[in-house]
Nucleic acid binder design. Structure first.
Lengths: 101, 101
DNA sequence: ATGTTATATCGCAAATATACGATTGATGTT
DNA sequence: AACATCAATCGTATATTTGCGATATAACAT
């Protein structure tokens, strides 16, 4: 992405909302989050079984959701249990709710 | 984006939500929409004045918002007046609200 | 120590996204 | 008709995303 001479400054809420939205901007990631909302938690392996995607691809989607702060991983050896990050989930919820008024 | 042999089928709401989210996944587009919410409507030129981005870049962002159905353009020669697409805005609002419970 | 299991990361290819300047197109004015 | 104005599109460069298979890592079991 080519950028202007310097990065544009947006309000903090704008940047944050865009970051959350970007993480939600792929149907697989929406589906993963919906699954997590139902199940409350799940393992990477569960998702690999659900979606016709390679394990590495699922792992990458989980990484992005984690980077955006929407989920968090708990060690549960030898598996890793992923759950919604409730704190940030609330923040995202508020930002979107506010945005749509 | 390389794809599996065939495209994955998601529920309609999932695809739609992802499409809206993707459109919201850039701070400039969030800022444009916020501006439209305040002003109710505006011209491309107004935005070119507000953001330190080329006219063509703004136009491209508007195109994406239009493709996602979030805004619509009215002819108002020689300008084009952009407004929120209220019908789809409501749909997006409901999808996001539902998603976050 | 070796093996098993579950997940993450690497390296690659292809597709998309972001940005720009230049050009085109559409409309109204002289 | 010629010109001015505004916005869209084209062509291009670069960055990021998406996907895969292969490999690495981490933890437990044998």
């Amino acid at each position: 992405m080519k950028r202007s001479l310097e990065n544009i400054e947006y309000k903090e809420g704008t940047e944050l909302l865009a970051r959350f939205a970007k993480a939600l901007g792929h149907p697989t990631r929406i589906a993963i989050l919906k699954h997590l909302e139902n199940q409350s938690c799940c393992f990477t392996g569960d998702l690999v079984g659900i979606f016709p995607l390679a394990q590495s691809t699922i792992s990458q989607h989980l990484k992005e959701l984690k980077n955006a702060g929407l989920i968090q991983g708990e060690l549960n050896p030898p598996k890793i249990k992923y759950c919604i990050n409730k704190e940030n989930w609330e923040i995202a919820k508020k930002l979107f709710t506010n945005f749509f008024e």
